[in-house]
Write a protein that binds this DNA or RNA. Structure first.
Lengths: 216, 216
DNA sequence: CGTGTTTCTGACCAATTGGTAAAACCATAC
DNA sequence: GTATGGTTTTACCAATTGGTCAGAAACACG
């Protein structure tokens, strides 16, 4: 008997059959839908199963437990989630690099709001399942890029700013449009159907003015 | 028999006895603790009762249902939550008013992070219980203050900005430190024990540069 | 003190939860 | 075909969930 289709090798083990591939995909998709809406505790296996078009026992044929689904989902998405920051190029033009990073993050909010809300829920609820990833991967990456930004500021390529808080502010501002989408839309009702174009313009202005070096 | 201690008059009905006052307070406090951590669906009545130092049936003596507790909590806190924005004075100095608003919001994140997370959870999970308050009170208040800001920008007292997105950005930036506190702390570990002093400095710089009118 | 009211508890309930066991159903390869 | 393995379902379980109820304490107050 095939105990568990997925191995615990850490990453995505390629499923054996086409059916497994299809169903595991469907489960991940459904899990994203449900976990991002309700967080780990609020999510129900029934709901994930139904969303995936499977019966609950069948769902549990592919994953041993609710926690396993959640963990797999988070670890799978973590990499993609960090890509925009990874792409920040120390050799590029400082202001343009930071603006481009902001734009990439805003695109992620627009195109993958559920992923944003998944992480938001997870962190809001204490980050119990991704503590190590935050303290490890994420912190390392942030520290590295913060150092790059510090260098830029030091040589006057951008106005002096606290690099860590600059990164936080990019997260906060861009993710806000995904995590609080409902609120944003309700408040803008009658003004902007799609908040993102205006958000992009606003954030470009904001970071341009913040980083403009001539006034240091 | 006293069917339900709380009336549905909308606001906080003054409890009859001292015991009721004490216990209802304890319940609200416990509910804040639990709901802000897990959201509505993830919260468990047991946990609220235990945190409040009451038995579950006793808890349900004071409130008819889980939903009732949640609703009461939200409506009670909504007013306080909006106060910082209400205090934005159209007659004050524009830049100083906006900076002061930001500072008030940041103080709220520092001093009342659970309240922030409660609303964050609620909105993240679809804002089902506060939709009307958002579309009503909040939207009205935001529109009103956005109009004030628009006026300031128009007469050149601050640099031109989209007023609504300016308000969103204040929310995003300040609430981030409460909602994502775990992450912020984990990443800053070894650098800043308390993120708030540096956050305030950073945000002051950010909004000063954003709003400085001379470059309009 | 007694009596009426408020507050609290233990026992209970139906529904839902995450999860299991085993049998039934497939789809092939031989 | 039929053996063989992967896949799915049916039936089930124990624990937990939100919530009820009758009555026991605890209180207030004349």
């Amino acid at each position: 008997m095939n105990d568990t289709p997925s191995e615990n090798t850490g990453k995505t083990t390629p499923p054996r059959t086409r059916i497994q591939q299809k169903n595991r995909r469907a489960i991940m998709e459904a899990a994203l839908e449900v976990f991002s809406q309700y967080g780990f505790r609020g999510a129900r296996l029934d709901q994930i199963a139904q969303t995936a078009g499977l019966s609950k026992p069948n769902l549990l044929y592919y994953f041993p437990s609710k926690e396993a689904i959640h963990t797999e989902l988070l670890t799978c998405l973590m990499d993609t989630w960090l890509d925009p920051l990874r792409a920040l190029d120390p050799a590029g033009d400082p202001r343009e690099e930071i603006l481009a990073y902001m734009r990439r993050k805003l695109e992620m909010s627009r195109d993958y709001p559920r992923e944003s809300r998944l992480f938001a829920n997870e962190i809001l609820q204490g980050a119990r399942h991704i503590r190590t990833a935050i303290k490890g991967e994420l912190k390392a990456l942030v520290d590295e890029k913060a150092e790059v930004i510090r260098g830029w500021a030091e040589r006057g390529a951008i106005a002096p700013v606290n690099p860590h808080h600059l990164i936080f502010s990019i997260w906060a501002l861009t993710q806000h449009y995904a995590d609080f989408e409902v609120q944003v839309r309700l408040i803008l009702e009658g003004r902007e159907d799609d908040p993102y174009p205006e958000a992009e313009r606003y954030l470009e202005t904001l970071f341009s003015r913040l980083l403009a070096p001539e006034r240091a």
